[in-house]
Design a protein around this nucleic acid. Structure first.
Length: 356
DNA sequence: AACCCGGGGGA
DNA sequence: TCCCCAGGGTT
């Protein structure tokens, strides 16, 4: 077992200094860059978030640049990264700091926690990395490392588990270099103490890891509940104007998936439907008019199943060629300026009339 | 406490 | 297929 706090911390930090990746935000101490990277990496692998981080700091070198951008442009750059409320909250908070707080970034855990989109993890990360405040981070990596090294079987997503792991991490943190400690635990979890088949024999904690001693590495951390997948049926009306120079996009305003992103006019049904059902819907008839729809044809015969972590979207794209004047036409040449879900982006890139 | 929110990658 | 990812917000 680990004898004391400095024992765990020292072993860990030695490993970290020898094995850490050279990531761009590790060369920064400006809170804006650390904040940006932490928001982007929430529930997101470094490999996936990295190109977005580089794109953002290039487009928005300062927090004021971000604050002065339009939400639509921020969402466009965020497109494909998922969890779009992160982008909306990021933009909201950039404006809050720039315009209401005299461009002064909060510099304590407590104040950071008040920012929209900043929870316990992110506030701890920024406070420790930027301001040397000894506040321990607890993310998926920390849960895994601590549950194994200390043999803790309390479910990580129970209220008692959250407190137990936070308290333990707080006991273990190196008060002299909290930012290094926090990043070290996470890096160790991400690169060595991995979910599946970690190399326990050569681990720096091999002689004191409780899970290794009891052979329970593969069972830790314990996690309860599994969300069940919900199936939905989407029918998109891909409107094509007479000369095929314009289409129609609508913004998703209500709460739910893809809030604030754009999509084609949507008909959601309880089950898969055919052409006759679509033709009866008011949403379709709105593009019918006196001059008549010239064509209604199905782009994909079998539904495209777009899989989110908690929903499967069975999707049909219905191409509607109409002679009607479109209410708010979107020129095809501008379609790529709109932030859209990956499901829509994939269709756009495959649908020949939308290619230049 | 339970549920919602994306998309991608690894085994 | 299933799991998980440098989590946070809402109800």
């Amino acid at each position: 077992m680990i004898k004391n706090q400095s024992d765990f911390s020292n072993i860990l930090i030695v490993w970290y200094l020898q094995n850490k990746r050279d990531l761009p935000w590790r060369n920064e101490s400006q809170p804006y860059y650390i904040w940006l990277s932490e928001i982007m990496l929430q529930q997101t692998r470094v490999a996936q978030g990295l190109p977005y981080y580089l794109k953002f700091i290039k487009a928005f070198p300062t927090i004021a640049d971000l604050a002065n951008a339009s939400e639509e442009y921020v969402l466009k750059l965020w497109q494909g990264l998922g969890y779009y409320s992160r982008a909306r909250n990021l933009h909201y908070t950039a404006k809050e700091i720039t315009f209401n707080r005299n461009s002064e970034f909060p510099d304590t855990y407590k104040e950071l926690l008040e920012l929209k989109g900043v929870g316990d993890y992110t506030a701890s990360a920024i406070a420790s990395i930027c301001y040397n405040e000894p506040t321990a981070v607890v993310d998926g990596n920390v849960y895994r490392v601590l549950s194994r090294v200390f043999g803790i079987e309390t479910p990580i997503n129970s209220s008692s588990g959250v407190k137990i792991f936070k308290d333990l991490a707080q006991e273990l943190i190196d008060a002299e270099r909290p930012g290094t400690f926090n990043q070290a635990v996470m890096e160790f979890g991400a690169r060595y103490c991995i979910p599946q088949k970690p190399d326990c024999e050569n681990c720096v904690f091999s002689d004191r890891c409780e899970a290794k001693r009891t052979g329970s590495v593969s069972k830790l951390p314990v996690k309860i509940r599994k969300q069940k997948i919900k199936h939905r049926h989407f029918n998109y009306l891909v409107i094509l104007s007479d000369k095929q120079e314009a289409t129609v996009l609508q913004q998703r305003r209500h709460k739910g998936i893809w809030q604030s992103l754009y999509e084609f006019p949507l008909i959601e049904t309880d089950s898969e439907v055919g052409e006759s059902e679509i033709a009866e819907r008011a949403e379709f008839k709105a593009y019918w008019g006196k001059n008549g729809t010239k064509e209604l044809l199905l782009f994909n015969e079998s539904p495209i199943i777009h899989k989110l972590s908690h929903q499967h979207l069975h999707t049909k794209f219905w191409v509607v060629k109409t002679a009607e004047q479109l209410p708010e036409p979107v020129p095809i040449s501008e379609i790529n300026n709109y932030p859209v879900p990956v499901l829509i982006e994939n269709f756009i890139s495959e649908f020949s009339p939308f290619q230049n």
